[in-house]
Design a protein around this nucleic acid. Structure first.
Length: 306
DNA sequence: AACTCCCTCAACCGCGACGGT
DNA sequence: GACCGTCGCGGTTGAGGGAGT
């Protein structure tokens, strides 16, 4: 049966070689010989019957482990060791907004990427953002003025979408759930937001998805604008958002970029005063996003359309 | 050089879905 | 319908390594 060791004991065994006990299940890093056995099995029988690999005595690995090894490392045409391109990052962010944490589904849109790849990519982003938020909290004495939504925005009214959304919202914020720093955030409907006269921070996904039904808002005193929050005499109204994005006077996206300390140097940013005294962190959330990543989010083809 | 912090990646676990008996 | 085995998915963990101090 699988799971004979607890997860904590796994790591004690992680670096061990083969166990002496014949019945013992081998865990930990795969060796080249094991990979070869697995590859031969797939050549012969296809990527299935994983459990038979062990029952035939070919490997002391569980079927589960074999499948995972094949799917994540041995499958042909995988982009192992290749960083996510800007296009891939765009795709993940867009699809996470659409599907929630459906990594396997998202991975089907990314040739050569596995669900594990996508999952790791996303969670490292989340962790980084959480760290940035903490850092910013420590650097200010007042309530953090920051876009605080970490979840994907609502996008459609389909049932599946709603379900995946609710799951993703509960999951994707897991890295910060325990943080005291999040206490002052609140979600407000756009209707409330646009009437709020104080400084406003927006969340990037809203622009990406043209979704403005939920926003994150925080207010800060005028003398605490260290984070590049918009200082504008122009409070956005419904009319601002009714315009096509390229015609919107209110500079949502540049504001977001500025909040994270990395404005678009080649973009004119009206209304935004760059008052960042020091960057929040050199590797802030979006600094390796390509400059044009939010300019044109195109509808994605589903794999069935390829 | 030593230490700490953070990121990436590989691999595990638990759980639910599914199919066969 | 109940049970069981298998598979697939999502969440989590920790080793290893790079960067910063």
């Amino acid at each position: 049966m699988e799971g004979r060791r607890s997860s904590s004991s796994y790591h004690r065994h992680h670096r061990y070689e083969f166990d002496e006990d014949e019945d013992e299940i081998k865990k930990g890093p795969w060796k080249e010989e094991e990979d070869q056995v697995l590859i031969n099995h797939v050549k012969k029988y296809g990527p299935r019957d994983w459990s038979s690999i062990r029952s035939k005595g070919l490997l002391q690995r569980t079927g589960k482990s074999c499948r995972l090894r094949w799917v994540n490392k041995l499958r042909p045409n995988l982009k192992n060791g290749v960083k996510f391109s800007g296009e891939e990052e765009r795709t993940v962010i867009e699809l996470q907004g659409q599907f929630g944490n459906k990594w396997a589904r998202i991975a089907t849109y990314l040739p050569g990427r596995t669900d594990n790849d996508v999952k790791n990519f996303w969670s490292s982003r989340q962790k980084r953002l959480a760290r940035i938020l903490r850092t910013s909290q420590n650097n200010t004495t007042q309530t953090c003025a920051f876009p605080l939504i970490l979840e994907a925005p609502k996008l459609s009214s389909s049932r599946e979408h709603e379900e995946s959304l609710s799951k993703s919202q509960s999951c994707s914020s897991s890295y910060i759930d325990n943080s005291d720093h999040m206490m002052n955030q609140q979600l407000v409907p756009l209707e409330d937001l646009v009437m709020t006269p104080d400084s406003i921070a927006f969340e990037p996904n809203m622009l990406m998805h043209h979704q403005l039904d939920i926003m994150s808002i925080t207010t800060i005193p005028n003398d605490e604008k260290k984070l590049g929050i918009i200082e504008s005499s122009h409070i956005p109204t419904h009319d601002d958002f009714a315009l096509p994005l390229e015609n919107q006077e209110f500079p949502i996206m540049p504001n977001f970029i500025d909040v994270f300390g990395h404005g678009f140097d080649n973009v004119e940013i009206p209304f935004v005063k760059r008052q960042i005294e020091k960057p929040l962190t050199p590797d802030s959330f979006i600094d390796d996003f390509p400059l044009d990543m939010f300019k044109h989010i195109e509808p994605l083809q589903s794999p069935s359309q390829w």
